[in-house]
Write a protein that binds this DNA or RNA. Structure first.
Lengths: 221, 221, 221, 221
DNA sequence: CAATAATCGAGACGGTACGTCACGTCTTCTT
DNA sequence: AAGAAGACGTGACGTACCGTCTCGATTATTG
């Protein structure tokens, strides 16, 4: 979420002189990464509210103005830091079974949530409650990319007949991930692999194609 | 969440019901309610981070020290304000159908979340990410009381044969409420009555007693 | 500087029933002396500005209101405390020589100033700079009584021919004691017995009857 | 009384006259003088105890932190303000007569003491009773510089034969100025020109060379 | 012997100023 | 032009005392 020159900085090796760099000293890449790294470190130690730009700048051996020059908010800085340093190993496998695919990815997710990165995620979600840009950055940089993969995984399950054809994928994914986020944020119960398996069994169980000659009272719809 | 234990009701030093008060001027009930009311009002207008104790004290016509005398954190104050003014109308009905019971209560919940109180809940959950006491206050004052009722409701469903006998009630409730909390906090999708109904259908569908002669591999365990 | 009932309290043993005590619980003598003692103790440890009524009340095991009931100012309390616990051994001897009389008393004074009581005197003089009542209490309770004795002592010297008949006694006494107060308050030099002796020699030397046939340029008057 | 040593003039690390400044934004001279001026103004209106840093900062249109950045105490601020704006016109003349020299300067001093600056001096001396740094600042910035001049003036008197050769100059000066400080601080009598003249006559009278063939016992030593 | 009345301790009350901290902006010199 | 350094005005923080008040308990005199 750098504000200026972002494209120019990233694409400079493809420009080959046709778009000349602006005059003056170029942006220090060292300062940029140092700031982001410090932000992540400090965010991991305390929460969003406790993180101060002052501390980040000091920890990164950087002038405060340099932080403010490139990130308008604390939120923007954190979102950037999170997106940059983030999320390997959260890919979906293709085992031939939706249950296994989902369950394996969800197990990875709770490992992340329980680890150092979890502090950061919870800090972002906390900060996002009073900062629209931050929560939106979380959605766009973290949630949506994974959800795209999840759609594909679910689609495979539908094709294989493991899930109903008319299943609402967003509802299904929220039903699978919502409980994880809830336990992660409210901390009323533990995030274990058994929990993930039970969750998958329960929710995906409700998403299977209906048996031909089986009726039950809907009660609702 | 009064922080000091002054109440004579708790001390057992041979008082035998004459319930003596501690020495000194007793706490002003007027100040207490005025502070809580101001806190709720101001929290509804802005977010958690924007709320200042200074403003609360001024709005409540109260000395700042009086706020700090009884609530150690902004967090504790908000938790108390929320718990005191909070949560009527979140009771579970007894319609004769688990699906209907749960769905009706969950519809009430999303109404609360979308309303003025929602700001407060999200502020508490946000603040709770870096404040153990706050999140624990939320659990004990808000989550557990409702969950007790929910257990009863589910038990009725089990007795009526709508749910499996061996169902993990906590897992089931997290599966029902987790998606609501997730959408509420991440705001990636809307909290509608249709969402609640679909959610109930999906999750409770996975919690029904298994058909007699129909077994399928869960794919997980 | 007690505000009410002062006379009644002090003279009760002379009243012999003709002036009855007012109804209600009588003032606690124990509280009074405890407060004054605590005030002196704490004043000795820190200065006037650092002394708080809160601390005095706590140290004296007394309610804050009890202090405020009887002393309107911190200044009044301190003046009272100083006057009550004060000043033995500052009397003037009668040796037959003004020089000796004064010098002996002044030596006693610097001993007081250098001791525990000195802290209190300096605190009162300090506090008196922004509190007219305090400095006036110091004058009336401490300065004037001693000065009355000093007048007598000087008068003896005049009668004996050791001092000029027309000497301005106040000027002379200020010239003797001023340097002591100056060194005591500014602390630019030490308050020793030698200093006192030198001072007496110098100033009293200037106050002797003029030799008959000796003229010097006045230069001033 | 700047508390930090930033000035490049003092460091000797091979600067060879190019006098580099420390990094960062330099201290605002405008803020400094504005603060000192406000401090003097407000101190003149009320006393030392009534002066608040909050008020000084507001009056000077300056952040409170800026005051605290450069002056650790209210005391230090006042000492600085006094020393900066202080003390012209307290020089010693050279009239050819010690009596006249001293008396003229002392008359100037009592004018200062009776004026707006007097409030400040008394505030400093009061504050200095519980603040070693403050009283020491007064000595070094105010007392010593004048005393140096006074030594010279007395020396001239000795050379001219108006004073004894072996006179203790510090004792003599304390005897001259002590009474002024005493009356100034205790306010038991007025600081008039006549008082100054009488004082000089008395004390300097005791400091004249002794008549050749006239000895009398001092009565003391 | 009750009723009345002023005291006592304790400590909460609405305030005010404290001294600190971080904010986001700025001003300097260096790279 | 961007960098670090760090001072600036601003404003909330949480604390400490201020002087006042409201309690129950205590200790006297008065009816």
């Amino acid at each position: 979420m750098r504000m200026r020159q972002k494209a120019a900085t990233n694409n400079s090796n493809h420009d080959k002189g046709n778009r000349s760099r602006p005059p003056g000293r170029p942006r220090s890449e060292a300062a940029r990464v140092s700031i982001l790294r410090s932000a992540l470190n400090l965010l991991g130690k305390n929460g969003f509210a406790e993180l101060t730009i002052e501390e980040v700048a000091a920890d990164a051996n950087v002038g405060k103005a340099t932080v403010y020059r490139w990130w308008p908010h604390k939120a923007a800085l954190i979102a950037d830091a999170f997106a940059s340093g983030a999320t390997r190993r959260l890919h979906f496998p293709d085992t031939g079974s939706v249950d296994a695919d989902m369950s394996q990815q969800m197990r990875q997710l709770i490992k992340v949530f329980r680890g150092r990165q979890g502090r950061i995620v919870s800090a972002i979600l906390a900060g996002g409650q009073s900062d629209k840009e931050l929560i939106s950055a979380f959605r766009e940089r973290f949630l949506w990319p994974r959800r795209q993969e999840a759609y594909t995984t679910l689609q495979r399950g539908i094709r294989r007949g493991e899930l109903r054809k008319d299943i609402d994928k967003d509802l299904l994914l929220d039903s699978l991930y919502g409980p994880i986020y809830m336990r992660f944020l409210i901390r009323h119960d533990s995030l274990t692999a058994e929990f993930v398996d039970g969750l998958c069994g329960l929710v995906l169980g409700g998403a299977r194609p209906r048996a031909k000659n089986r009726r039950r009272s809907t009660g609702l719809n």
